[in-house]
Design a binder for these strands. Structure first.
Lengths: 131, 131, 131, 131
DNA sequence: GTGGTCTAGACCACC
DNA sequence: GTGGTCTAGACCACA
């Protein structure tokens, strides 16, 4: 696993770890049942305190993204969401709005933003539509 | 100006204020040269510590979104961006990635996300393309 | 707030704190928008490390049961559940099964268990049925 | 014997084994004097470390639920409980409280919870009342 | 050896 | 002053 910590970022370290693991899963680089590095391994590799890794893993587990078992390690879980669809829509649309507002203030026109959006989305492994 | 603080949100209050002012500008509800409420007015209206409002205004000024003239109040600035296009692309694409990763983990398919994105984008006043 | 820690219990301390706060809310002793003791206050009162209290509060926040704001403290949130109804049913029925199995092994007959159940349920403030 | 391990559960594996054996007994699928699989058999069947099975059996024996005769295997014991009725009541009522508190926070109304409780209880073989 | 819990103590962002 | 993050290090339950 390749994880890079940006110490200059205001984003907490544990959150950066979460971001990158979720990204790797969404990209298909990590698949369900794959084993994650142990807390101690990753802590040594990134030169961080094991508690920091632990916090990231705990959060990921709580979000149902990984499964951790004392004595066995941490594994990627099946994709799933306990949230009701309306809650998911609300959460995502809030994030979309922030993105769009930012784009407007950066004077990026709608077409360009749409292209960047499509270009980025193409790289990820979405769940198939259930039409 | 209508600003609503969501105390349940983990987003800091000063950030929520920033978000909503930027949103109102992007929606066209606030236009260049419009006068913003004074720090004291807004603090009284939202029942918040004036320091919190100050922090939001200071941040907005730093981002070139408003202009404060000491003694005369704060005004909406012209849209502009000092950032190079490549930096803007990088910043927005990072945000797009976080959004898409989140959508994948919520098992929202690409088409649905695209629809939500388009629906949201339509509400805002983008700068015209400079083709 | 009256919280009692049982050091003899195998249940982690932070979990005991969570249990009792959720209980107080369910009993109506704590109501939405009530202020909880600060992390440091409660840590001093229970002679525990502030991190332990912090962990309990963080978990409660993640479950949408309280709202914490740096600089402002922690407050009881409105009752709500982001979980879909089927997930809620599954979670509760698993817990019910464990309870019933335990009762059978303790040779408690069905009627007695039902009475204990009703007696306990009566003490709590359920959401009204939405028939 | 059909035992299923849910690796996604936070419940320890040895505890899941205990849960399911107790459940099978409470359902009447396993009866007093029935022979349980050997530690090795079960370990092979579930692809688990034999120590894990051992721990489960040891705990079940300690709780008086099974009897292991060295060299002869493990057998289901007669239902019995050394605990005084008041202790049993205390233990069960604690568990009932946790269940009810959870239900309140999930915004399940009392009637629905009661129905789920009755529906679940009906499936099990309670000891007859000793009125 | 694995992750989980708890303590102790430093530093920072928020209000 | 509030809670959040991170480090360091001890001890325990699980496999």
């Amino acid at each position: 696993m390749q994880i890079k910590i940006d110490n200059a970022s205001t984003r907490p370290i544990y959150q950066q770890i979460i971001d990158q693991i979720k990204r790797d899963i969404a990209l298909g680089r990590l698949k369900a049942a794959d084993k994650l590095p142990t807390v101690r391994q990753l802590a040594a590799q990134l030169v961080l305190n094991p508690n920091t890794i632990s916090k990231a893993y705990r959060q990921l587990e709580q979000d149902g993204i990984i499964v951790t078992r004392p004595g066995a390690g941490a594994y990627v879980a099946e994709l799933s969401s306990n949230l009701s669809k309306s809650v998911r829509k609300k959460l995502l649309c809030e994030q979309i709005e922030l993105l769009v507002v930012e784009a407007v203030h950066m004077q990026i026109d709608a077409r360009t933003l749409g292209e960047w959006f499509d270009g980025t989305a193409k790289k990820f492994k979405f769940t198939d539509s259930e039409e």
